[in-house]
Design a protein around this nucleic acid. Structure first.
Lengths: 343, 343
DNA sequence: TGTTAGCACTCGTCTCATTGGAGTGCTAAC
DNA sequence: GTTAGCACTCCAATGAGACGAGTGCTAACA
């Protein structure tokens, strides 16, 4: 069967109505709601077709219809009217000097949650390049060295190294020069054993330290791998009765608390290269089992230089897709701008 | 009325029973439960007294009794049999090299939650002294300086400073020496305008930088003030029907998500100096409104040098106080040990 | 005087039947 | 192809009745 013009209009009306109310919607409601003047009986016939085609379903025999996952999917793919959103707060927020990345991300997460009334998450940008920009070794105590590594994108990593011997200023200076001349501009993977042994040789009696420092650097950079995720508004799910029952709520809350469980979502979003930047997971389409009764909308943001992160909104299936997608587009766009203005 | 020996035993039995079951407990149950061989009728009379005295209450006329806040309070203050707990996992966890404070804290929070089946929180230690131990200024880019500040307790802070002029190595070295000789060993509050202007004078044409650096340092150290709190196991509350209803769950979850709301709890715990280290807030005793239907048990841990933080367990009023307090004592003790072994 | 048995009473919970209404599907007429 | 009408379904809300856990009180007992 083909989806006639009229069927589409009716489906659209059903979904819109259901998004608003969360109640199954009946034929009479639609016959009043739409501009095509049809009686409820006609609508009923069409609805019967739509159900057969899998776009809507009945919770029980004598109830109205609700959209199926397939129905939502069609809606999102073809029928949405994306609402552009002005997020003044965001602009203001970004105008304030927000140096600390984690603060900014937390703020964005919160802003999203408050603005949409859904739950939100944001992952810190993954640094793909991880090129070392600068290394600094300093003595903070008789047998403690502080290693500071700055990588591309001004991400700073610290590590304290315990040493057996006490290094004097001159040696320290030499080591610093040695490290910087050899390692600057390199990514972690580019550092090979040959280089290390060359450096050790040059370091002479302090060769042990060189090894420790490189270990410390490797550790600092690698630590980034378990990527940081910030969330907000998890308790918004209680606003939607279909998610608020104990079983579901508990699972969702748990996922939000064990943020690492959200990693899959981030991976999945980032993996999809060809995409316009926005992805919508409806119900079972989600990679996270706990969210099979939700819809998840994710977007990729980019802070130049291959630093990419993910923003996501998690809500009920009857989420206001138009608004959410509009909001996410605005946010990612603003994050781009932010980066441009910073550099 | 006096609390006779027998009344105490009965009250204890009521509370113990209620802690297990979560159901109001009746006179017949107690008459079988206790070793004092009394009929249910006698128990009833005693229970009537206990109710009048405010230690127990009836949810409705023909139901059994449940402990009141006052009853729990008496129990915690005088009748508990603290269970000592061996936490092998904790020891193992701490044996592994856990350099990163935040990782350790997250782990501890999780361990607590899993172990007790309640929700847990832990605040990062507040650094009271905040004495500057070491300052390092480095050039990472033509017009970018990296300021690293290490404060007492090896807490490291970074800040990137934009400069108008490009500083050469020699100037940078001079500035470093200038900053370290003037500021090392001082707390933020001890830096006064006199010192700053003295330093600026010595810095000559680079005096502007000195101001910027001091601002950056102040900012880094102050940032510590909105203290970090880690939580775990919030969704454990769903295991206790009396907390699992939407209204309450939502409030509690929200508090856990907006971690700053837990600050009050931390403040309150740390403020109470005279205490043995463990504090119990039963129901309305809590400083956090959202937790008025919970009990909260907090402990202070100390990592030497005035670095103190708070650990807390949040659960239903019928929490297993004996176990929780035992666990918290073990944990704080282990954290102490950890610190000793590190230094 | 403290303890106990017995009994009437209360009140929440469970079950079951009833009702009302929203909504459908089908049929026949337009 | 559209619509009115009607029988039918099924959920949700309501209320009556039975049940039982538990109490308070009284009177009797050691």
């Amino acid at each position: 069967m083909q989806l006639s013009e009229r069927k589409i209009k009716i489906l659209q009306a059903i979904i819109r109505n259901y998004l608003e109310t969360g109640e199954p919607v009946g034929s009479r409601t639609i016959s009043k709601y739409t501009d095509l003047n049809l009686s409820s009986a006609t609508i009923r016939n069409e609805m019967s077709d739509l159900e057969e085609m899998g776009y809507i379903l009945q919770p029980h025999t004598s109830a109205g219809r609700i959209p199926s996952d397939q129905g939502y999917r069609l809606y999102v793919d073809t029928m949405m009217e994306e609402k552009d959103r002005e997020l003044e707060e965001l602009k203001e927020m970004m105008l304030e000097k927000e140096d600390k990345m984690d603060h900014l991300l937390k703020q964005v997460a919160k802003l999203l949650a408050v603005n949409t009334n859904y739950a939100s998450m944001i992952s810190a940008p993954m640094i793909h390049t991880n090129k070392i920009k600068f290394i600094q070794l300093s003595r903070v105590d008789v047998n403690q060295l502080l290693a500071v590594v700055v990588v591309e994108g001004n991400v700073i990593k610290n590590n304290i190294i315990q040493t057996l011997e006490t290094l004097d200023d001159e040696t320290l200076l030499k080591l610093n020069i040695l490290l910087n001349t050899h390692l600057n501009g390199l990514a972690l993977e580019e550092i090979n054993l040959g280089m290390i042994s060359a450096m050790k040789q040059q370091a002479g009696i302090h060769s042990a330290i060189v090894g420790d420092v490189i270990d410390a650097i490797a550790e600092s950079i690698k630590a980034e791998e378990d990527l940081e995720i910030y969330t907000s508004g998890a308790n918004n799910i209680f606003k939607y009765p279909e998610l608020a029952d104990q079983q579901k709520a508990s699972e969702i809350i748990n996922t939000f608390e064990e943020k690492q469980l959200l990693t899959e979502l981030v991976q999945d979003t980032l993996a999809d290269e060809k995409n316009t930047g926005i992805q919508v997971y409806i119900g079972n389409e989600t990679p996270i089992q706990a969210m099979k009764d939700c819809s998840v909308v994710t977007a990729t943001y980019e802070l130049g230089e291959g630093m990419r992160g993910t923003i996501g909104i998690i809500g009920p299936k009857r989420m206001d897709y138009d608004k959410v997608i509009g909001t996410l587009k605005t946010i990612t766009h603003q994050l781009d701008e932010l980066y441009k203005n910073k550099t």
